[in-house]
Nucleic acid binder design. Structure first.
Length: 150
DNA sequence: CCATAGGTGCAAC
DNA sequence: GTTGCACCTATGG
């Protein structure tokens, strides 16, 4: 059974979904049309988000998430998840590690719908910030929170 | 299949 | 600065 939670972050509402205590989605949008809103089920996560958006070092890597069926994306996402708070790598570095190309990494990351928990914002381009499916303003803000200026 | 498009990178001018 | 191309995956005909 899927339940949803809405979190009001300083940079906009976040909708999170979980099924059997595994997070299946976390995105910057306000999906209030969803039924089954149970914010109390996300108490631990929301407290971490409070601290995170206050600028503290908060890790999310121990929270169970659902990886995609697509094996390539699952491989990329698991690799990205090793990145800790404030740690960044380039598309090229990830690609080399996985034996693929930087563009393929970008393609996979654009399909990430569990933001923050799968920290695709910590993957940047060789020459600059790179892209972000929800807009680079959000990416820049997240990196700023983690003490990174580009 | 073939064409085209990405959250890229690199070399060349 | 910019143009051009190789790179791998995704998507649509």
């Amino acid at each position: 059974m899927i339940v949803y939670g809405i979190y009001e972050s300083p940079i906009g509402p976040i909708t999170v979904a979980s099924e059997d205590n595994v997070i299946t989605m976390l995105d910057f949008c306000n999906c209030t049309e969803k039924n089954f809103i149970r914010n109390e089920e996300f108490k631990d996560l929301f407290e971490r988000l409070d601290s995170y958006f206050r600028g503290n070092r908060v890790e999310f890597y121990d929270i169970p998430v659902k990886y995609p069926m697509n094996p390539f994306r699952a491989r990329v996402f698991k690799e990205i998840r090793k990145l800790r708070w404030g740690e960044i790598k380039t598309y090229g570095m990830i690609a080399e590690r996985l034996g693929t190309s930087p563009r393929a990494i970008g393609m996979a990351l654009s399909k990430n719908d569990i933001l923050l928990l799968i920290p695709c914002h910590r993957v940047v381009a060789e020459n600059g910030i790179g892209g972000y499916s929800r807009g680079i303003l959000i990416k820049r803000k997240l990196l700023e929170l983690e003490g990174i200026k580009l």
